[in-house]
């Protein structure tokens, strides 16, 4: 019985150290604050997710880690929905700079943020890019 327990602890230690060694990004509490904002949608849970994104950027910079993919973009998108255009565009640009793979999408979002005067991004996006979107009606 005791042997089994000891074995488990040793295995757990190996397992955990494996995780620690390959730390590429600091995602903070991202998955959890996002989950909370889905499970209990409120201004409060949205705000804590926004703050978590800001914290991830801040701490990653401090620790000299690459900001995880999508974090700048998601933050920019939240600002966009809050109609904070300049902040939104700034973050889209940061994402693009860090991850050139995101260029196409970030350019679209940036364009939408510049064009659309309405507070909701949805209209801007839809007008801006409907012809070449993946469209279920097309096929």
């Amino acid at each position: 019985m005791n042997h089994l327990k000891f074995g488990c602890i040793v295995l757990l230690a190996i397992f955990l150290s494996g995780c620690a060694a390959q730390r590429m990004y600091n995602w903070g509490d991202y998955s959890n604050t996002l989950y909370q904002s889905k499970k209990h949608p409120s201004d409060k849970s949205d705000l804590s997710h926004l703050q978590e994104l800001e914290k991830i950027i801040e701490e990653s910079m401090k620790d000299n880690l690459r900001i995880p993919p999508g974090v700048y973009a998601e933050l920019g998108y939240i600002y966009f929905r809050q109609n904070k255009r300049d902040l939104a565009i700034n973050n889209f640009k940061m994402e693009k700079e860090l991850y050139p793979e995101s260029t196409l999408l970030m350019d679209r979002l940036e364009k939408a943020a510049k064009l659309d005067d309405k507070p909701k991004p949805s209209e801007g996006n839809a007008q801006d890019a409907s012809p070449d979107k993946p469209d279920k009606q097309e096929k």
Partner: peptide, 16 residues
């Protein structure tokens, strides 16, 4: 999104 990024891919922001 988070675990997939740890595999080393650029993962598009799911929320967007």
């Amino acid at each position: 999104q988070e675990p997939l990024s740890f595999s080393g891919y650029y993962v598009f922001p799911y929320e967007i």
